[in-house]
Computed example of a mutant assay.
Amino acid sequence: MQDRTSEWFVPKIGPRNFRIGVGMLFLPYTMIVTCFAIWGSLGGVFVLDRLVAIGVIYFLAVGVSAHCLDAVGGKTKPWGDLPKRKIVSIAISSLVVVFTIGFYYAFLDSPLLIPIGIAEGFFLFAYNLELFGGKFHNNLSTIISWGVLPVFAGSAIQSNSISIETILLSIISASITYLLITTSRKYKHLKREGGNIDKIKNKERILKLITLTVIVVTISFFIVKI
């Protein structure tokens, strides 16, 4: 499937390059992972600037850097042939911002962010560039990097610790991530093979429901905690 501009998360109007640019962010999935990081921050006593910081970190790391690298570094080219140097430059620039924010809080009082950041950095490159023969381009890597580590990072930036509440939240987020990626893979397979329209629409509705539910739960969680 070379042209993904017909995907439900891609704007239906605007110049093609704009639509591809927004589509590359995979905003529903990016928002879900960002929400998981916020869950980690909300799991205990939180400071707003740190909650915002971890949200920005994961939005840029996943939404921009990871998806840019995936667009030019993976075996498939879901958005067609893109200017590799430009896309990689955007990915690296975003990572510079990510690690600048992360190291600031890590050296301030949250050193637990360092091993989490190293692990996330490894998965970001190993998964999206399909390094090591693509051994880490699998569901388990996605569950760890999208579903578990973001929650840990959200907690670490607030308290430099991983609590029982954090672990419980990460189990929930990991389960949601598993449902998300398995549904997404089936959805992509159906679209690629020109499958039954009703089945495609059903998978699409599930993906939309997961996205909306996670966002609503996150907003509600935040309101309850303030």
Rank of each mutant, 00 (worst) to 15 (best):
A37L: 05
A37D: 07
I38V: 13
W39R: 05
G40Q: 11
G40H: 10
G40N: 10
S41M: 11
L42D: 12
L42C: 12
G43Q: 13
G43R: 13
G43F: 10
G44D: 15
G44N: 14
G44K: 12
V45P: 06
V45S: 14
V45Q: 12
F46R: 08
F46N: 09
F46C: 07
V47M: 05
V47P: 07
V47D: 13
V47H: 10
V47L: 06
L48Y: 07
L48S: 02
R50L: 03
R50N: 04
R50F: 01
R50D: 01
L51Q: 01
L51S: 06
V52A: 09
A53I: 10
A53F: 04
A53N: 04
I54T: 12
V56I: 15
V56Y: 02
V56H: 04
V56R: 04
V56L: 14
V56E: 03
I57C: 14
I57H: 06
I57E: 11
I57N: 10
Y58F: 15
Y58K: 07
F59M: 14
F59K: 04
V62M: 00
V62L: 02
G63T: 06
V64D: 05
V64L: 15
V64A: 08
S65W: 02
S65N: 08
H67G: 00
H67P: 00
C68W: 00
C68E: 01
C68D: 09
L69F: 11
D70N: 15
D70H: 13
A71D: 05
A71H: 04
V72G: 09
V72D: 08
V72N: 07
G73N: 10
G74R: 01
G74N: 10
G74L: 08
G74I: 04
T76Q: 14
T76M: 11
K77H: 13
G80V: 09
L82T: 10
P83Y: 11
P83F: 10
P83T: 12
R85W: 12
R85H: 13
K86Y: 14
I87T: 13
V88G: 12
S89N: 12
S89T: 15
I90C: 14
I92H: 11
S93G: 15
S93A: 15
S93L: 15
L95K: 11
L95M: 15
L95P: 02
V96R: 10
V96S: 13
V97T: 14
V97R: 05
V98E: 04
F99H: 06
F99Q: 04
T100D: 09
T100V: 15
Y104A: 03
Y105G: 01
A106W: 03
A106H: 00
F107E: 02
F107P: 01
L108F: 14
D109A: 15
S110W: 03
P111E: 00
P111Q: 01
L112R: 03
L113D: 01
I114P: 05
I114T: 05
P115T: 01
P115Q: 03
G117S: 08
I118A: 12
I118D: 02
A119I: 14
G121R: 00
G121F: 03
G121Q: 04
